[in-house]
Deep mutational scan, measured.
Amino acid sequence: PKDEAKKKVKEAIKRGDEETAKRIAKKYNLDWDDAKREADEER
């Protein structure tokens, strides 16, 4: 599900692992900028 994928993307971003985050986002066709902004807001 997309929500689960987005959570994984945000967790990867918070760990500083943007490569993984981008790969997950691409795989699930998520909006990378959107997920990154959300992760930054939660930090």
Rank of each mutant, 00 (worst) to 15 (best):
A35R: 01
K27M: 14
K10W: 08
R43W: 13
D3G: 09
T20P: 01
I13W: 04
I13M: 09
I24F: 01
K27I: 12
K7A: 11
K36I: 13
E4F: 11
A12I: 03
K27D: 15
I24L: 14
I24Q: 01
V9P: 00
D34F: 06
K7Q: 12
E18T: 11
E19R: 09
E11N: 06
Y28K: 15
A21K: 01
Y28D: 15
Y28A: 15
R37Q: 10
R43S: 13
A12P: 00
E18D: 08
K8F: 07
E18R: 04
A12K: 02
E18V: 13
K10Y: 10
D31T: 03
A25W: 00
K6W: 14
K10E: 05
I24V: 05
P1H: 13
D34Q: 13
G16K: 02
D3M: 11
K27S: 07
D34E: 15
E18G: 03
D31Y: 02
G16D: 04
L30T: 03
A21R: 00
K14Q: 13
A12V: 02
A25H: 01
W32P: 01
G16L: 03
N29L: 05
A21C: 02
E4D: 12
K2S: 12
R43Y: 13
V9W: 05
E41D: 10
K14T: 08
R43E: 13
E19C: 11
R15V: 06
I13F: 04
T20D: 09
I24W: 02
E4I: 12
E11G: 02
D40I: 10
D33G: 05
R15P: 01
K8L: 14
D3L: 11
E41Y: 11
K7D: 07
K26P: 13
E41I: 11
A25F: 00
K22P: 00
D33L: 09
G16T: 01
K14E: 11
K2Y: 13
K36Y: 10
P1K: 13
W32S: 01
A35Q: 06
T20V: 09
E41W: 10
K2L: 15
E41S: 11
R23V: 09
E19Q: 07
R15W: 05
K7S: 09
D31K: 01
K14D: 10
D40Y: 11
L30C: 15
A39T: 07
K2A: 13
K7H: 10
E18F: 15
K7T: 11
G16V: 01
K10L: 15
E18I: 15
K10T: 07
D34T: 12
A12Y: 10
R23N: 09
E19Y: 04
E42V: 07
K2E: 13
P1Q: 14
V9F: 11
I24S: 01
D40Q: 10
A39P: 03
R23K: 13
R23G: 05
A39R: 03
E4C: 13
N29W: 05
D33H: 05
W32H: 00
D31A: 03
A5I: 10
V9G: 00
K27P: 00
Y28V: 15
K6D: 02
K2G: 10
A21T: 00
K8Q: 13
I24A: 00
E41Q: 12
A39Y: 11
A25P: 00
W32T: 01
A5L: 08
K10S: 08
A21P: 00
K8C: 15
K10D: 04
K36H: 07
P1D: 14
K7N: 11
D3A: 13
W32L: 08
E11V: 03
E11Q: 07
D17M: 04
R37A: 12
E42L: 07
D34N: 10
